[in-house]
Design a protein around this nucleic acid. Structure first.
Length: 645
RNA sequence: GCCAAAGUAGCUCAGCUGGUAGAGCAGCUGAUUUGUAAUCAGCUGGUCGUAGGUUCGAUUCCUAUCUUUGGCUCCA
């Protein structure tokens, strides 16, 4: 019999007969290890413990651990099976679709004969616990194509899964099933595996939520019920995770936005933000932060109308390809639309006067307010709204200039994000969507140009097929919120279509007219969304330049209010955003209010400060900084204002 | 738009199986004149998301609708 060589995590090499199982190897190392083992990993492939091993390579025995992604993966996937079995038991006639382990747990998409409601989860959990207690083994069955397909005939989703599995390149023509217990007696599911040896190995799980999900993610297809749950190696891991969610909720920008009185959204205009004075300070501070960067990079800022006649949207293609996303309005009998994007308006400015090749690249920026009719049910605080301000710009350039302009922009995005401490950014490359304008030749050219640019920018990306804008492919810069959900912020898009459609031209060196390429780009994306991300990232403890109130003066009693007002006046004149707390409260109470409002500097003034013409400074998170003169304090804030994190 | 859940005072929430609503904080008034995360007392405040229906009677049951939340889809 052939021997295979297995390299263990400690570097030692074991030579065993081909066909030996992971469990046998675990036993040969230690009985205890064999008892704990969940699965094995051979060359990056996780396998059941009792699968015969046929190849040499790196080898590890997977044991329960909240730190081991492989362990969590098998546990969660097996837990999803237990979930599916429980649902099938409780709701006969349930059809199963798909039940993978995901980043933070697992889900199962299924179709029950009657709709499930949230309260059913408790019942399902109870049944799952019984199945786990029965400690039934997961048994793998490998069947040939005919036998396998015969087993899933009644279930349209599983049949579809089976057919697709057989079509996959790495298919060996067999289909695998996992029975939880005895064949033909207990529940089974078409599944590639791997699984843990028996259900009793699941020690800590919880069902979390119920959601609708489309079969294959296709809106036109069946709507399935998705049950989300999570599973950990032990109770402690589960509790830590649930605690994490609880903690994350405290960072939620919607909660902090309310507590700090930054904004609200109301029923009259769903998805549109009412920025309160304090939020407005932040919006303006962020705009100014970006504006200063753009000024240095040769952008010209413009302002364009928000309401534009339908005819422009017809020419641009929006009326055809973006229609359901647009707010429409009538001016008497004239049909207008509220702009969902700034690009057509920027082309209108470009088209004023004759442009020469010497004008290119022409970088036109606008903090343009856009409105998009997003589907109900997609709104989310500041992150997903219907009215938002983009830090938008359009770069009109030649084909030759695309790569360097895109590359420079990528650098700008990285710089800005790094200043806020976002260093690990996900970049997606989205290619031509089904609904698009322009010929395939132009799309080939645009996608190629964007790819060349990513090489110049030395940018790693994830391919996101079919998700580009209707006029061109795009790069998306993705940030995460407190719960780890992805939000697209920055973007750059290569567009060979709109300039042509809207008649943009420049005179080239050859004295002929040419159509410029247009790069649509936004560094933070939308001011609203980016502030939402920042609120969660900083948990309300904003850097001094961004924070709405930088200092509050706290007179110890009414006797010192006059002096406090004088301090306040001095600070206002020095450009510090300052408030005064004249309330008839004790100092401890006033300080507590400031801490809750996350105010960076508190200036306590009492008898001592009045006589010495000083203020006592208390800094957020750092405590008492001692007393100093007002001018010393102003110097201190000036230094702190430049610090981003 | 789809599935599920929710909507009670400015905020956070209570209100069991139908008998016209409560707490804490905030706010107001008064007392206190306060030294680094909550001084005390009193008072105000809600046609219980909206519109219908069932009922002698609806915050509570039913229907519709709007909004919000968690997902799906879509997107900055």
């Amino acid at each position: 019999m052939n021997q295979i060589e297995l390299t263990l995590p400690d570097g030692s090499v074991r030579s065993v007969a081909s066909g030996t199982t992971g469990l046998e190897i675990a036993k040969s190392i230690a009985e205890g290890l064999a008892r704990k083992a969940l699965a094995i990993k051979l060359n990056d492939k996780i396998l059941d413990l009792n699968r015969p091993l046929k190849e040499s390579g790196t080898f590890k025995i997977i044991t329960p651990s909240n730190e081991d992604a492989d362990a969590l993966f098998v546990l969660r996937h097996s837990c999803a099976h237990v979930l599916a079995e429980a649902v099938c038991d409780l709701y006969p006639g349930t059809q199963l679709a798909y039940g993978p382990a995901i980043d933070k747990g697992f889900y199962y998409d299924l179709m029950t004969p009657t709709p499930l409601v949230f309260d059913d989860l408790a019942k399902i959990e109870k049944r799952m616990k019984e199945i786990i207690k029965e400690d039934r083994p997961f048994i793998r069955l490998e069947l040939n194509k005919e036998e396998g397909l015969a087993r899933v005939q009644k279930d349209k989703y599983k049949l579809d899964n089976a057919e697709r599995a057989l079509q996959r390149e790495d298919s060996d023509g067999t289909l695998s099933f996992y029975v939880t217990g005895k064949q033909n007696e207990n529940w089974e599911d078409l599944c590639a595996g791997p699984h843990i040896p028996n259900t009793g190995k699941i020690k800590a799980f919880k069902l979390l939520s119920l959601a609708g999900a489309y079969w294959h993610g296709d809106q036109a297809s069946d709507q399935l019920t998705r049950i989300y749950g999570t599973c950990f190696a032990d109770k402690e891991g589960l509790e830590t995770y649930l605690k994490f969610i609880e903690e994350a909720e405290k960072r939620d920008h919607r909660k902090i936005g309310k507590e700090l009185d930054l904004y609200h959204i109301e029923d009259h205009s769903p998805g549109m933000v009412f920025w309160h004075p304090k939020g407005t300070i932040m919006v303006n501070a962020l705009k100014q932060f970006i504006r200063e960067k753009l000024n240095r990079l040769g952008y010209d800022e413009v302002i364009t109308p928000e309401i534009v006649d339908k005819s422009l949207w017809i020419k641009s293609g929006h009326a055809d390809k973006y229609n359901e996303n647009m707010f429409k309005t009538m001016a008497n009998d004239r049909e207008m639309a509220i702009k969902p994007m700034n690009c057509p308006c920027h082309i209108e400015i470009f088209n004023q006067g004759l442009k020469s090749w010497r004008d290119l690249p022409l970088r036109m920026a606008e903090f343009g307010k856009c409105h998009r009719y997003e589907p109900a049910g997609t709104m989310h605080g500041l992150m997903r709204v219907r009215g938002f301000v983009q830090d938008d710009a359009h770069i009109f350039c030649t084909e030759e200039q695309i790569a360097s302009e895109v590359s420079n922009f990528c650098k700008l995005v990285k710089d800005i994000y790094a200043e806020f401490g976002f260093n690990d950014i996900l970049v997606k490359f989205s290619t031509r969507p089904e609904k698009r304008v322009g010929s395939d030749d132009l799309w080939d050219k645009a996608e190629q140009a964007l790819e060349d640019a990513t090489k110049l920018a030395n940018l790693d990306y994830q391919l996101n097929p079919g998700e580009g804008a209707f006029y061109g492919p795009k790069l998306e810069f993705v940030l995460k919120d407190c719960l780890g959900r992805d939000w697209q912020c920055g973007t750059i898009q290569v567009d060979f279509n709109l300039p042509q459609r809207l008649g943009a031209e420049y005179v080239g060196k050859d004295n002929q007219k040419h159509i410029p390429v247009m790069l649509h780009r936004a560094a933070v994306g939308s001011i609203e969304r980016f502030l939402g991300i920042l609120i969660e990232e900083f948990m309300g403890d904003f850097p001094l330049w961004l924070t709405p109130v930088q200092a509050r003066v706290l007179p110890i009693s009414e006797k010192f209010v006059d002096y406090a007002k004088q301090v306040e006046r001095d600070l206002i004149n020095a450009g510090v955003r300052v408030e005064i707390d004249e309330s008839n409260e004790k100092l401890g109470y006033k300080i507590r209010q400031c801490e809750l409002q996350k105010i960076p500097f508190l200036l306590v003034v009492g008898e001592k400060e009045v006589s010495e013409k000083k203020v006592s400074v208390r800094q957020r998170k750092e405590g008492d900084k001692g007393s100093m003169s007002v001018s010393e304090f102003i110097e201190m804030t000036k230094k702190a204002r430049d610090v981003i994190r």
